[in-house]
């Protein structure tokens, strides 16, 4: 059971208020007609599916109904940070593997 910090409500709420919506930061090709079948297939169907740090989209379905991002470890299920739409993650697979300021970034990320 997750206890998730909604960056809009600025509160921790139970997992059941939320729905996961898949990988975050996927941009729709700007000119679909000019996009190759390969690139379109990638956009629609191919996801990172990492064993480790993952950036994903969640929606606060029975709360403020806003979408936001979560950085989570898919092995331990630990939530490393949550952040608003339009923002970039401060914890990434690289920052975790090199250990660079990840723990402080986590804290500020979660509280922000």
């Amino acid at each position: 059971m997750f206890y998730i910090y909604c960056p809009y409500c600025a509160e921790y709420r139970e997992e059941e208020e939320f729905h996961p919506k898949g990988q975050a930061h996927i941009a729709r090709p700007l000119d679909p007609m000019a996009t190759s079948d390969d690139a379109w297939g990638d956009y629609l169907f191919f996801r990172d599916n990492p064993r480790g740090v993952h950036h994903e989209l969640w929606v606060h379905a029975v709360g403020c109904r806003k979408f936001f991002n979560v950085t989570r470890d898919t092995r331990t299920y630990a939530i490393l940070e949550t952040y608003r739409i339009g923002e970039q993650p401060s914890v990434t697979a690289d920052s975790v593997s090199t250990g660079s300021a990840a723990s402080t970034a986590t804290l500020t990320g979660v509280q922000a």
Partner: peptide, 8 residues
């Protein structure tokens, strides 16, 4: 299934 990714 759980809607999120997981390997645990």
């Amino acid at each position: 299934i759980d809607g999120y990714l997981g390997y645990g």
